[in-house]
Structures are given as structure tokens and as C-alpha cells.
């Protein structure tokens, strides 16, 4: 039996550095790629609002179901870490996308930033739990689910605080997490795969495995 020591080992710099070692230093192309992805998604979200306006009424009969497409808003939180494989890529990208939509005039005011940071944090936590070494389907789906959790926690506290816990809040969060896992998690994996042959991932680890021509 090892001696019982109640204080956990202090995380020294060496341990943290070793933990983050696989991610390495952010190159300019990593920073700019995340930032441009954020910009591109702020446009996608904006365009999606028009498509969404046509589908929205379908969900009125069971409001929590509106969380089904929640995953679309979470893609940056998973896609960016999958591509650049750097610690903090989810928070940076999703937070910046939120800041961007604020500069564009988001109907949600400054709170989109908090919400964006929470979503990004969810995504990053998943990749951290894989010690920044695993970028497979399970981690991506976990990332989407946690991002959905972060985002909807904000929703139920800020937008829908008076709603019923079991009739609305719980199913809403759960559906958003499933949607995050599928749309943002699996969707981002599919996007990365589809991007591989286009050559835009050549400078990233995710693009290394493609066939040569």
C-alpha cells in the first residue's frame, strides 16, 4: 500500500508541457486557419438563418425538438481542433465566430460570446480527455456532445429559465447533445475526410494520409 497522501500531486510545468507536447506550437497557418474558419462559419450561420426560417414552424409542436439542428452551430468547436490539432483550438474558433457575429450584429447581443466560449470549451475538453493524441470518431462525437451541453446550459439558464425541468430543459439539453455528437462530431469528421483530396489540409496532420497523384 502506498502511504496515504491526501494532497494531489502538484501539476508541475513539466507535466503540463508533456501533456500538451503532441500539439506543439501554434504556427501562423494554424492561427489564421482557425480564424478564417470562424469567419466562414459566421457566414454559414447567417445563410442558415434563411433556410432555418422555412423549417422552424415544424418544431412548434414539441419545442425541445428545436435542438435537433443545434449541432450545426457547434461544428467549429469540433472541426477546428480536428484540423489544426492544437490545445484551445475549439475555444478560439467558436469564441471568435461568436465575436464575429456580434460585430455583424447578432440578435443575441454580447451573450453569444459567453455561449460561444462555453461551446468551444466543451469541444476542447473532449480532445483534452484524449490527451491531444486521439482524433477519431469517438472523441469527435464526445466533443460535439460536450459542446452541445455547454451551449444549451447557457440557453436553459438565460433564455428559458422558467421552463419546466423535465418537460423541457432535460430533453432539450439531451437532444442538443445528441445533435452535437452527430452533426458536429460525425459531420466534422466527414468534412475533414471530404477536404482531404482537395489539398487544403496538406499543411496539417489531418491531411497527411491522402493518396498521391
Amino acid at each position: 500500500m502506498p502511504p496515504i497522501d491526501s494532497s494531489p500531486p502538484a501539476p508541475d510545468r513539466g507535466a503540463l508541457a508533456a501533456f500538451l507536447a503532441p500539439t506543439g506550437r501554434w504556427r501562423t497557418v494554424d492561427i489564421v486557419t482557425c480564424a478564417v474558419l470562424a469567419v466562414a462559419f459566421s457566414i454559414v450561420f447567417w445563410a442558415w438563418n434563411f433556410v432555418w426560417a422555412g423549417i422552424d414552424p415544424l418544431f412548434k409542436f414539441f419545442p425541445p425538438l428545436s435542438a435537433v439542428i443545434y449541432g450545426l452551430w457547434l461544428i467549429p468547436a469540433v472541426l477546428a481542433p480536428l484540423i489544426v490539432r492544437k490545445a484551445g483550438a475549439g475555444i478560439f474558433t467558436e469564441g471568435l465566430a461568436a465575436l464575429m457575429s456580434l460585430l455583424l450584429g447578432s440578435p443575441y447581443g454580447i451573450t453569444v460570446i459567453y455561449q460561444g466560449l462555453l461551446q468551444g470549451l466543451g469541444g476542447d475538453l473532449a480532445f483534452a480527455s484524449g490527451r491531444y493524441r486521439r482524433y477519431g470518431v469517438p472523441i469527435a462525437m464526445l466533443g460535439g456532445a460536450l459542446a452541445g451541453f455547454g451551449g444549451t446550459m447557457w440557453d436553459v439558464l438565460y433564455w428559458y429559465p422558467t421552463f419546466d425541468l423535465w418537460a423541457f430543459k432535460v430533453p432539450y439539453v439531451a437532444i442538443a447533445m445528441v445533435s452535437g455528437a452527430i452533426v458536429a462530431g460525425l459531420g466534422s469528421k466527414a468534412l475533414v475526410k471530404a477536404m482531404q483530396p482537395t489539398g487544403v489540409l496538406d499543411r496539417f496532420p489531418a491531411g497527411r494520409e491522402r493518396a498521391r497523384i
Binding site: 486557419t33 480564424a35 478564417v36 474558419l37 466562414a40 454559414v44 445563410a47
Partner: peptide
């Protein structure tokens, strides 16, 4: 959306090269 993303990634690569 996919075409836009690929275009955005391509621009990002070029912008990063221009900045470097």
C-alpha cells in the same frame, strides 16, 4: 457550404503565407 469552407481554408493558407 463545403465549397465555401474549402475556399476559406485555401485563402487561409495563402493569407498565412503572405503574413509570414
Amino acid at each position: 457550404m463545403f465549397a465555401l469552407l474549402v475556399g476559406a481554408m485555401r485563402r487561409a493558407g495563402r493569407l498565412a503565407a503572405a503574413m509570414d
